[in-house]
Design a protein around this nucleic acid. Sequence first.
DNA 1: AACACTATGTAATAATATAACATATATTAG
DNA 2: CTAATATATGTTATATTATTACATAGTGTT
Lengths: 133, 133
Amino acid sequence: MKTMHKEHTLTKNQQIIFDLIDKSSEPMKAYAILFNVQKKGIKAPLQVYRALDKLVEIGKIHKIESRNAFIACHNSSCQVAKATAFSICEICEKVTEISSAGLSKYLANFKDKDGMKYSKYNLEFFGLCKKCR
Amino acid sequence: MKTMHKEHTLTKNQQIIFDLIDKSSEPMKAYAILFNVQKKGIKAPLQVYRALDKLVEIGKIHKIESRNAFIACHNSSCQVAKATAFSICEICEKVTEISSAGLSKYLANFKDKDGMKYSKYNLEFFGLCKKCR
DNA sequence: AACACTATGTAATAATATAACATATATTAG
DNA sequence: CTAATATATGTTATATTATTACATAGTGTT
Ligand SMILES: [Zn+2]
Ligand SMILES: [Zn+2]
Ligand SMILES: [Zn+2]
Ligand SMILES: [Zn+2]
């Protein structure tokens, strides 16, 4: 078997925060998350950041670096928690995870001028989404 | 002539801050920049951020989004202020701007599943640099 | 001179993220 | 099972990154 998926059982805080992000239609910022989960007993920024760190680490969510925001992974079976690509609408800020075999293959095989390959990358495309065009 | 380069005459603050970043061997963070230019009369964060915004806008520097840091553009004639790619060493944090015709062509021509093209992108590769391998 | 535009100066504050320390819960080894 | 270890949580304080708001100054155009 080529890829074995370790099942990560989420802890309570991780589950609460993942559920919130997962059902959100847009990327969520840490303090928006905090505000939303306070009714569930998560009171401090650090509790949020710790859960976010872990969720990113195991690939359940991704951080949109240019926006300091987080979205759930929608690459179904995301073996590529470390090879991410997104399109970002510069008007409505809609973010979509790009799942392109061609793109990931190209980038995974890309060699810099020293012949160096990189297995980990993050790519953010910017433009206008369908609605905003 | 294909690309006409408007010469941007930098203002005083812009020049001070660009010079500092340009001579730095590593990406600089905004408050490190602030600290360094205080002797030159730039006293407030906003003065730094305004200069940074402008310098990014005209392509003299780039922001490394995953690090909240800034480096001078070294794509010599950077027509691609909006199409940037970097390699980042996860140990020593060395950042290098990637200048690859193949890569930029591939990305500029990349179409998502809706057939959408993106003229603007930012790509960050992560790995270990020569020294850290 | 009048106007528009860009840049600067300054103070206050907002938004994002981490350090430090105490406690609790889960996992593993003996 | 129990002790040891690792992971997760709770809490307070603080560090880091970035923007709002408003006043002033310079630059170029008509
Ligand atoms: Zn994903
Ligand atoms: Zn849009
Ligand atoms: Zn460049
Ligand atoms: Zn290195």
